[in-house]
Simulated assay, not measured.
Amino acid sequence: MYELSIWTWLERHQLPCLVKDTFGIECPGCGFQTAVLLLLKGELWESVKIYPGLIPLIVFIGLAMVHFVGVKKITPGGIKFAGFVCLLIILISYLLKLIIH
């Protein structure tokens, strides 16, 4: 009997990239789903190698959520800075991926 784990099911049911399917090039979000799955499995380094912007994105979303629920120690300027850093990491890693591959 074949046993299907949750990880196997999630890996088989990832959403396709419409940009890659249409134009044949990866978009800045390509690799995100795989990186999330690797992170959930505990494979931090592999996750970062696949999509370097994942951890900064998680930090940015966490800061925004904490501010949203009322923690005033986290300023809007800090959230904007975290978002800028996150965006910068995603764009730089995307450009490097396009150049190297």
Rank of each mutant, 00 (worst) to 15 (best):
V59Y: 09
L4T: 04
F60A: 12
I90Y: 05
L38R: 03
E11T: 05
I100Q: 06
G70K: 15
P56H: 11
E43I: 00
R12D: 10
L37P: 01
G78P: 06
L98P: 01
I79D: 09
L57G: 15
C27M: 12
I55Q: 07
W9Y: 15
Y51S: 01
V36M: 09
G42Q: 05
I92D: 02
V71W: 13
I90E: 02
I61K: 13
K80R: 15
M65N: 07
I6D: 08
C30F: 10
L18D: 03
Q33T: 02
T75R: 14
I99P: 00
A35T: 00
T8P: 00
I50A: 04
H13S: 12
K80V: 14
K97N: 07
P16A: 11
K20Y: 14
P28F: 06
G24I: 05
L87H: 04
G24E: 04
I99R: 03
Y94Q: 02
K80Y: 13
F60R: 05
V85H: 02
I100H: 06
P76H: 12
P16S: 14
C30T: 04
T34H: 07
L98W: 08
I89Q: 04
G78I: 09
P76K: 12
I79W: 08
M65I: 13
Q33S: 07
I50Q: 08
T22G: 02
E26T: 04
V36E: 02
R12G: 14
A82E: 10
L38N: 00
R12L: 08
L18M: 15
L87G: 10
P56M: 10
T8D: 08
S93L: 01
W45Y: 08
K20M: 09
G53R: 05
G29F: 10
I79T: 14
I92V: 15
H67Y: 12
W45D: 05
I6E: 11
L63A: 08
I89M: 06
V69Y: 13
G42T: 03
Y2A: 05
V36S: 06
T8L: 00
I58T: 14
S93Q: 02
F81P: 03
L10M: 10
L87R: 07
G42M: 03
G42S: 03
T8A: 06
E11C: 05
I89R: 03
F84Y: 14
M1P: 05
F68Y: 14
F60Q: 11
H101M: 07
A64D: 08
E46W: 03
L57A: 15
F32P: 00
S5P: 00
L88E: 04
W7D: 02
C17R: 10
L87F: 11
P56F: 11
V66D: 12
K72W: 11
L96A: 09
I90S: 01
F84V: 14
K97L: 04
Q14E: 06
F81C: 11
L96H: 05
M65R: 10
S5D: 03
G70I: 13
K49D: 00
S93F: 01
Y2I: 05
G29S: 13
V69T: 11
L98Q: 12
C17N: 15
V69G: 09
G53F: 08
C17P: 06
F60W: 15
I6K: 14
P16H: 14
G62D: 11
L63T: 10
